[in-house]
Nucleic acid binder design. Structure first.
Lengths: 283, 283
DNA sequence: GATTTTCTTGTAGTTTTATTTCATTTCTAG
DNA sequence: CTAGAAATGAAATAAAACTACAAGAAAATC
């Protein structure tokens, strides 16, 4: 738990003098971590033992230990607090807010993931005869991205971003086929129907979507990113980034699982691209 | 600069005893920040002043100050150090490595951005008659994503991921058109030619690409993400994520610049989608 | 190869910083 | 208004960090 947040939350549980300490710290945390206990006591206009007691109340061993905790939470740039863009932000402000909230979001997503399910998904993908990635709207770019990555493994893989093609593809499914459906909310009707159709035709359905959504219910395996987002004005930015990173994770798992033989194959594909470039490397 | 990294990098500039200290810290940074100078000296089998000298050599005021620095860099989950996936990583390991290195990469990207150029890009986009997003290969999904976002602003916007269409589109360019080219390396021949073609037809060319690349030279405005990446085996994962976040930033800047009127428009587009859903929200 | 110089390291002493103890003050409840 | 409890700070104690200096090792010079 972020120390600054903790202090804010417990402001009313402190005694009068202890609150003075809290406020002094909140006013300038940077000063706090670079002060001695005597100095901070003077700033807060209390005695040294009071500062010490304040530290202990926050479950630290004492003042130096408290400074350590505080320093650590400052290092994170408080990414969880108050990072929404508002109307009068300048370029500097909205740029760092977006980057920081994206990072915070990835962090949250990481902590909320079920590693066993990921492992399971990699299993399924490794054994698939054919893999298809489906997404609609904003999620279609995630599906495309997935296609791009799996394409290099030299296995049958496809990607559709319109419902008609998705349905047609599902009808031709057989056992051993894996369909990966991508939807932030899991409430896009056509996609839920596609999931149903796929399962009726014996395909294995993996969903990258919200837990407890209609789409999740229709799927064999759900990888959910617990990333709430205000989708009312701005677009589902961060959550989509998290989906992409999840695709990265699956790709990596896939690569590792299939071992060295396949990694050679990857290199060969890359080598084949080099001709169309000024130099080496990748787009 | 990350303290642990700094220690590693300077390992050979230390004297024999100081290196003992460095190694003791690297072996268990967590122990280090919770030890007194006497304790750490004992662990490293040196004297206390040696530890103190070691701290000063790293440009800190002394041992307590050093602990603060170290604590801060530990708080970031050591994302900069040694985060490459290797063959025998389990799901847990590669998942967190990928998430963490992506976050680190975003952080690096954020710090390397030129805010003025972003502001300039937003300016140009806001005044464009027509916006086109071009990408090839892995970058095409970024272009699609951009299309998806700008599409909602109710301005002429298009996206092509094959060279032929891109060239055709460029030939029809007129002054006031803006072309956004996306390429991780900036060395994809066809895309560089497209940039040339677009400029010959009076379009304004914005490139999301590496600085000092052929593509950068052919563009009117370059937004570069200084994100080096080992593209030899794994794909350009993190850098592409950074590009996407940059698109988010541009979109946000665009939204803010055009003011409240346009934000209403966004809401209307959203409302129009709702019918095709089980509930509200967005994919 | 010896000798001087420089750099490195540790011991012991000093100073700074943090913590504990305890007396005083300030609330709170009857 | 007073007994008891809680909060606070002064002073003393303990701990930690730092400094000065001297002994020893390594490097350079003759």
């Amino acid at each position: 738990m972020n120390t600054l947040e903790l202090i804010k939350k417990n402001l009313d549980t402190f005694s009068k003098s202890e609150r003075k300490v809290a406020e002094a710290i909140l006013a300038s945390p940077q000063t706090a971590i670079h002060s001695s206990i005597a100095n901070l006591a003077k700033i807060a206009e209390v005695s040294e033992p009071t500062v010490n007691r304040f530290c202990r109340r926050l479950d630290t061993k004492g003042f130096p230990d408290f400074k350590l905790h505080l320093a650590q939470s400052l290092a994170n740039g408080t990414p969880y607090v108050n990072r929404n863009v508002n109307e009068d932000d300048g370029p500097e402000a909205y740029t760092s807010k977006i980057f920081e909230s994206t990072m915070a979001c990835l962090n949250a997503a990481k902590n909320g993931l079920d590693i066993n399910l990921i492992n399971r998904a990699v299993d399924v993908l490794t054994q698939a005869n054919k893999i298809s990635f489906f997404g609609l709207g904003a999620s279609s770019s995630v599906a495309h991205d997935a296609l791009n990555k799996f394409f290099r493994f030299n296995i049958p893989v496809s990607c559709f971003d319109d419902v008609v093609m998705q349905r047609m593809s599902c009808i031709n499914c057989t056992e051993g086929d894996v369909i990966v459906l991508i939807s932030h909310t899991g409430r896009t009707k056509p996609l839920v129907e596609v999931a149903q159709l796929a399962r009726e035709n014996d395909a294995f359905v993996i969903a990258l979507t919200a837990a407890d959504s209609p789409l999740a219910e229709q799927s064999n395996l759900v990888l959910s990113l617990g990333v709430p987002e205000d989708t009312d004005i701005y677009m589902p930015m961060s959550s989509r980034i998290a989906q992409l990173v999840l695709i990265d994770v699956l790709t990596t798992g896939f690569t590792l699982r299939r071992g060295a033989k396949f990694r050679d194959n990857l290199k060969r594909v890359k080598a084949g691209i080099k001709d169309s470039r000024f130099e080496k490397t990748e787009d």
